[in-house]
Design a protein around this nucleic acid. Structure first.
Lengths: 224, 224
DNA sequence: TTACTGAAAATGTGATCACATTCTTATTCT
DNA sequence: AGAATAAGAATGTGATCACATTTTCAGTAA
């Protein structure tokens, strides 16, 4: 007897896949500073911590290693990539090349709903700053940027940028945890204005400035 | 009894890991056109074909999916990403942003051994053209570019560029299989001259031209 | 011929186990 | 005390199995 097409909801195309959920959880931890740079992770440890077997962890970790978020040493030890001066400047350069471009592509597809969504995220971001909540700040900052980038309809560049954020995420958190966060909000306002006007060049410039200020701030703390 | 440190060679730090070897094999197939765009792959099929169990295949496939070389559809079907107009132009744009930059970084670290290695690869490439061997041509073209990029000492950008090549690789092969290959060699010569002089700007320009001509050629065949 | 159906085959996923290697730590020797 | 060492614990890897879902395809009906 086959009732699935008649009685059961058929409009649930995506069943939840464990290793994808695990990936999102690990990504969240990485981007919000749950793992400090250099931290050693184990498959069994994560499996117990996240309440599943080793398999979904293995798959998620493999993906994160492929994207450069995690490192696999020659002794097969998994760790969060530690930051070095060279890595930092290279990530900065790559961000400066890709993110203004992908942002400018978002301007064309901009609409009122997008601006409204960004406005909401930015409000939560300012609240996180006021409450001095670095974890939430990191999350909302990520949401703000990637909501824009997602709107660009440029999935290939989006993947590259996600890789970059996953690589500097753990380190940024260490810094924003110490320093207060203040000025980047102006660039967010500039970005939202540019999206309202659907102005690619203005959006490109606002993201350029946001990256420059953000990385400059990290560098000040990093180089000393 | 422990003889390993005395009698056994200790200078073999990297034991071969199956899933890494599988990854390299699959990457080779993708870059040289072993898999045509849209081709459906199965884990069990690859396992039998490559003579191992499903596990190493799963890990290698996971990595290739993370890098965008393979696609995982909502029905959990694995396939080589088919090319679309949008994807093609996005890859082109990303290549144009990243590869001239990473190339220019290689110029600084250039040395005679590097130029010699490139000269050898380029000779093999010309031979592949003469013999009309698209598979070898694709391989040598990849080796030429990535030998330069590797010399840049920019592992983060290198990962991004590898992702891009894996994504347009299968499609390029379809094209180079039909059209003859001829003119890109001039840009290779220009690149080697720039490396001899350790001239970042000249190297950047040669790569820019190489990408432009290469993608232009693909487009001509693609847009009609 | 064409569209539909349902059973069988195939597939990705998650779980578990064995094993070689690596890491940890307590003990010994200088 | 401090370095070397060996036993034990822990870890990543590969293999295998069960299961739900998806795909394939022969058989049926219009």
């Amino acid at each position: 007897m086959e009732l699935s097409t008649s009685n059961v909801r058929d409009d649930i195309p995506d069943r939840t896949i464990a290793h994808e959920e695990i990936y999102k959880q690990l990504r969240y931890s990485i981007l919000t500073g749950g793992f400090e740079p250099g931290k050693v992770l184990t498959i069994r440890g994560l499996a117990e911590q996240l309440g599943c077997s080793a398999m979904p962890i293995r798959e998620a970790v493999r993906k994160l290693v492929a994207l450069g978020a995690l490192e696999m040493q020659s002794t097969r030890r998994i760790s969060v990539a530690p930051m070095t001066k060279e890595r930092f400047y290279e990530i900065w350069a790559a961000r400066a090349l890709l993110e203004p471009e992908i942002a400018s592509r978002a301007a064309i597809h901009s609409n009122a709903a997008l601006v409204r969504k960004l406005k909401k995220i930015d409000a939560q971001l300012e609240k996180a700053i006021a409450k001095n909540d670095p974890e939430k700040y990191s999350l909302k900052n990520w949401e703000f940027h990637f909501t824009i980038y997602q709107a660009s309809n440029s999935p290939i560049m989006l993947r590259l940028v996600e890789s970059l954020w996953l690589q500097f995420g753990p380190f940024m958190r260490v810094v924003t945890g110490r320093l207060g966060t203040s000025l980047q909000v102006d660039h967010h306002q500039m970005a939202m204005d540019a999206l309202k006007r659907k102005d690619p060049d203005a959006l490109r410039e606002s993201i350029r400035l946001d990256i420059q200020d953000g990385m400059e701030r990290i560098r000040m703390d990093f180089e000393t």
